[in-house]
């Protein structure tokens, strides 16, 4: 039995060493990766100056064309991430502040995402490689139930979020396989949709006060960033468009742009514009809120 217990102790030590080595390897790979996602790009950049930054979900990622702003003399980047919620947008803004970004205007999509105070597990996982190296991320997630395991058990975070930051993603990062997320200054255009759009149903959506949005407002106020919170287009077939009226009851400062583009030819799906729609919409927003510098 003594021999077996010694065998088990050795086995546990081996497991610990294996986990530590894997953790070191994965973290080292992610720390040098800056072209796989907007989050690794953000983590590995510093001292950037932007006139305009966009934050939000796919309804930002696919809707705002930075080129239009850039041509008008505004240095702009689209940091919208598909599936991101306001919880992740708030952390991204905090990271921008931590990385010493200078931002004049922040355009934030606030529409369907204030239906919930929940987070996106898929996007949260992309922050996890930097949990030990970024004080901002550590503090932001300090109230997670599994925070101690994520921080102190070697390799736990990579196992817990294996679908997004597991071996597959680590391997692609190690060989510097690029994605297209950083092309077009962060804008990802969608293709044309079907002739007849499938209506989005917002009948179960209720706008609520949102913790992420409140955090973003506070960060902007503290760092002198001009916050522009706005809604983005939904197709006319959408069920319960009254939802947008309710948004303004909860947050009156939110600007209404959900009708800025309405023709079905501009939509890829009911909730997402195609490339032409995105250009039209960006122009409408720009003309309403900005003036060309040059």
């Amino acid at each position: 039995m003594k021999k077996f217990l010694l065998f088990l102790v050795k086995g546990c030590a081996l497991l610990l060493v294996t986990l530590v080595l894997l953790d070191v390897l994965y973290t080292a790979v992610y720390l040098q990766s800056d072209s796989r996602s907007k989050i690794d790009y953000l983590y590995n950049s510093k001292d950037k100056n932007y006139d305009v930054v966009f934050l939000g979900s796919s309804r930002v990622n696919n809707h705002f064309v930075p080129e239009i702003f850039n041509k008008a003399g505004y240095k702009t980047f689209n940091f919208g991430i598909t599936r991101s919620r306001l919880d992740e947008s708030a952390l991204m803004l905090q990271m921008m502040v931590e990385r010493n970004y200078k931002i004049k205007h922040l355009i934030l999509q606030v529409d369907l995402n204030i239906n919930t105070n929940d987070h996106s597990e898929a996007i949260r996982s992309l922050f996890m490689p930097y949990l030990q190296t970024s004080k901002t991320i550590r503090e932001y997630y300090s109230d997670l139930p599994e925070y101690n395991q994520l921080l102190y058990i070697p390799f736990y975070r990579y196992m817990h979020y294996d679908a997004r930051i597991g071996f597959r993603e680590m391997y692609y990062s190690a060989i510097h396989k690029k994605t297209n997320v950083l092309e077009n200054d962060g804008f990802h255009p969608l293709l044309n949709g079907p002739d007849k759009l499938v209506p989005a149903d917002l009948s179960k959506y209720y706008p609520k006060r949102n913790k992420g949005y409140e955090t973003i407002k506070a960060i902007c106020k503290k760092n002198n960033i001009h916050l522009i919170a706005l809604t983005t287009p939904m197709c006319m077939e959408t069920i319960n468009r009254d939802y947008f009226n309710h948004i303004q009851k909860v947050y009156p400062e939110i600007l209404r742009f959900e009708n800025a583009v309405s023709d079905d030819k501009y939509f890829s799906t009911c909730g997402h514009l195609n490339k032409d729609g995105a250009i039209e919409y960006t122009k409408v927003v720009f003309n309403a809120l900005f003036k060309p510098k040059k």
Partner: peptide, 15 residues
């Protein structure tokens, strides 16, 4: 054994 443990940790599906 260490390769198997590494495979479980790194290639296993947990989420």
């Amino acid at each position: 054994l260490s390769l198997c443990l590494a495979a479980i940790a790194a290639l296993g599906v947990f989420s």
